[in-house]
């Protein structure tokens, strides 16, 4: 787990640029409903968790969403498409440039702020969630993938439901 108390590292501009691009593409596939692409951002053993600041700070292990590998991440999309019922809605992510909190060989630790607006059918957009991504990214030289992405929501309160990933 990245330690957010660490001071930001100086990472070279090209690395920051690559990570920033990764985050933008990540937001893009979610916001543009290319959700089948979303699991590909993770390593095969990649972990994805949506939690709240309160739960995260209290080291609570349960997530609003908790996927322990890419197969579980794919199942979230399968269920969203084929099993779960909800009112049609879309997200619009605004993702900050990343702050590097650790560099260890090919594994990088990052913290990135985001805001996510939700539009339910033809209603007005609303702020659905603000928070931070706590990431561990693996760099195989050409492709960056999430070994872990913990989405820490600033508020304990989610409006109605969460089915599309953050």
């Amino acid at each position: 787990m990245p330690d957010s108390s660490l001071p930001p590292f100086d990472a070279d501009a090209s690395l920051l640029q690559r990570i920033d691009t990764l985050n933008r593409r990540y937001g893009h596939v979610i916001d543009e409903d290319k959700l089948e692409e979303w699991p590909k951002f993770f390593t095969e053993d990649g972990r994805y968790m949506v939690t709240t600041r309160q739960n995260h700070e209290a080291n609570m292990p349960v997530g609003l969403i908790l996927c322990e590998n890419r197969a579980m991440i794919e199942d979230r999309i399968l269920a969203l498409r084929s099993a779960n019922l909800f009112e049609p809605h879309s997200y619009r992510h605004l993702i900050d440039p990343p702050v590097v909190t650790g560099l260890d060989g090919i594994e990088y630790s990052l913290q990135t702020s985001f805001a996510c607006f939700r539009t339910v059918q033809s209603s007005a957009p609303e702020i659905f969630c603000t928070g931070k991504y706590l990431d561990r990214i693996i760099d195989d030289g050409s492709i960056l993938r999430f070994k872990e992405r913990i989405v820490v929501c600033d508020s304990e309160r989610i409006d109605t439901l969460i089915v599309i990933p953050l």
Binding site: G63, L66, M72, A83, N84, T160, L161
Partner: peptide, 22 residues
């Protein structure tokens, strides 16, 4: 912990209950 994906606001078999209230 794994099974808790079934419950809560993002729960596979709980999310509809919140929506149907609205």
């Amino acid at each position: 912990i794994r099974q808790s994906n079934l419950v809560g606001p993002g729960g596979y078999i709980a999310m509809e209950d919140g929506a149907v209230v609205g």
